[in-house]
Design a protein around this nucleic acid. Structure first.
Lengths: 340, 340
DNA sequence: CTGTTAGCGCGTTCAG
DNA sequence: CTGAACGCGCTAACAG
């Protein structure tokens, strides 16, 4: 019978009895209140140790009105963007005294409602809602008994607080980098046009091109966020516009495909053709030849900030509202800058 | 002040007062006990609805002695293997009435101890410990007040129950498939030799080769689990042993590198050279040219099973002990079988 | 300094 | 059928 060795956890009254004091005294002794004799405290602490006493957080929470837990409501754990956010949040909370309830709704609204109910019944002190895309998602409503922060996917209600990466700035940043590298004939291969991410990045890219008096070479190419599409699109592009000198890709996966085709067609990267990806998914971006310059959305930081906001809200601080677009950053590697 | 609209959650006594009954009656009405008049029940349910009453799970748990929560203690969320396991477990639990506390120890023993304490103080009904490698990890000990199941990384104490993928069988399966494809000159490129996974897979491979009266071409090549190493190793291998007709790779990343080099050197896959990966990481395995045959460890299922074991243990069922090696499966794609 | 008392929100006896 | 009373484990007021 594995993992059943220990008896049921000791209670405070067990400790008190063993130390020969009252329950209240034991409580004070263990919680570091200063109105208890040193000798008594030692006895109590010893007894607690011997029984490996662990205070019951539920009983404590019942009194305090706070549970020291928050809910992390994700719509789809599978998504690559979920994990860093989740890590950031878990990290920020774990450092304090709060624990995280993880709920995966699997993209199903019913299940989400179910999980939400469960979280509320567990009296979480706050909730972070993490969506899988940057498209706005339905708000949980304004009648929540606890603070809610939306991460990655913003809420569609501006009265909610949402934290989402700044894809527009990312698109701009990518183009500005390419221009800074002396490129002027820039094309764009990206994913599903139904994604706000695709549109926002493109808009940012257009803005940067405009500002430099340039235009995209050909139309922006939309399809899916895959390496295969990157390969096919690049082949089409390079045939129709052999004179492009840079390609801004909507994802690292697409960029990997583009690199592949460039190699097949004998185009040298970055000298002859610069390629920039998006997401900075290191498994892909650091293992390509050459390594991939990319835009990093700082997702872990986003998760951390979401956690911090929830913290603040719990402490009664006004955390504001609206959708905040968090800064992204450029990670430069060999696909845009020749290594010396 | 977003997400603060609702007042504090209603309590059962609020509901009772509004319905004009006693707390006890309200409780019975809401919990479907049959000793309450239909009319009364309706009044109570209505009142509960209007106040959007949600029972306090803590108070309930205090009485029941069970919390309906389990702890998921991971050593490193970043790991690719964590996520499917976590999903499987969350899935299995989410279907029932239990919620999951997620704790990431970041590979730090101190932090793990800290989180463990937190979980126990929250009186989780059970714990799943998920490690990032298949090498045995230190046991949490036999004195746990709740059942513990180890997933992926087995415990080093045979009295614990551990669920881990069968890497030996995976290695065997890979080789048997290659032999089944008519290959006889098989080489092995894998990752860090310090990983049990690398050793176990190799052992399984050797067993399968033995059984067929074959030997590995050259020595097994160890280094890191990266695409770069796959490329470099393949180049060395193909130069030294141009006659190899198949390569068993210790990971899909390595296999991607191998495919890359094969293409550079004009070796056609799978006709001239069959390549098989490991992990079935779909982003990599389905986006290569040709797509990658691989071994899938069924991690999501592993997570689900771990959850099921914890469930059983909570219900008092004896879940056994020892390290169980769960079956893996072969996923055949174009890198070993020519598409017709 | 220590012990007694009173709840936190709920489910469960057991009398009415 | 309904309600009053008790207790889950703990902390915060008070008394002693």
């Amino acid at each position: 019978m594995p993992s059943e060795g220990g008896a049921r956890s000791a209670t405070l009254s067990d400790v008190a009895r063993r130390a020969g004091v009252s329950i209240a005294t034991a409580s004070k002794a263990l919680n570091g209140r200063d109105d208890v004799a040193p000798a008594t405290r030692r006895r109590v602490v010893e007894a607690a140790d011997e029984l490996s006493f662990t205070p019951n957080a539920m009983a404590r929470g019942l009194l305090a009105g706070r549970t020291g837990t928050v809910g992390l409501l994700t719509s789809d754990l599978e998504g690559r963007f979920m994990l860093p956010i989740l890590m950031g949040a878990e990290d920020a909370f774990g450092a304090g005294q709060v624990n995280v309830f993880l709920c995966d709704a699997r993209g199903d609204a019913i299940r989400e409602q179910h999980h939400l109910k469960a979280l509320l019944s567990r009296r979480v002190d706050g909730i972070i809602v993490v969506g899988r895309q940057t498209d706005p998602r339905p708000s949980l409503g304004q009648e929540m008994p606890v603070p809610v922060v939306y991460a990655y996917a913003p809420s569609d209600d501006p009265r909610d607080l949402s934290l989402t990466p700044d894809n527009y700035a990312g698109g701009r940043m990518a183009i500005e980098h390419l221009i800074g590298c002396g490129r002027t004939r820039i094309a764009h291969i990206t994913g599903d046009p139904a994604y706000a991410a695709a549109q926002d990045r493109l808009a940012g890219a257009r803005a940067a091109l405009d500002a430099a008096g340039l235009e995209l070479v050909g139309e922006a190419m939309f399809s899916e966020w895959s390496e295969h599409w990157g390969r096919d699109a690049a082949a089409m592009l390079l045939q129709r516009h052999p004179d492009v000198d840079a390609i801004f890709c909507g994802s690292d996966q697409i960029a990997r495909g583009v690199l592949d085709t460039a190699r097949d067609l004998g185009r040298s990267v970055p000298d002859d053709l610069a390629v920039i990806g998006y997401d900075n998914w290191e498994v892909l971006s650091t293992n390509s030849r050459p390594q991939l310059t990319s835009i990093d959305a700082n997702l872990q930081q986003l998760g951390r900030q979401a956690a911090q906001r929830v913290f603040d809200a719990i402490d009664g601080v006004d955390i504001g509202e609206g959708t905040h677009h968090l800064p992204v950053r450029l990670v430069i590697r060999g696909s845009t800058i020749p290594r010396r």
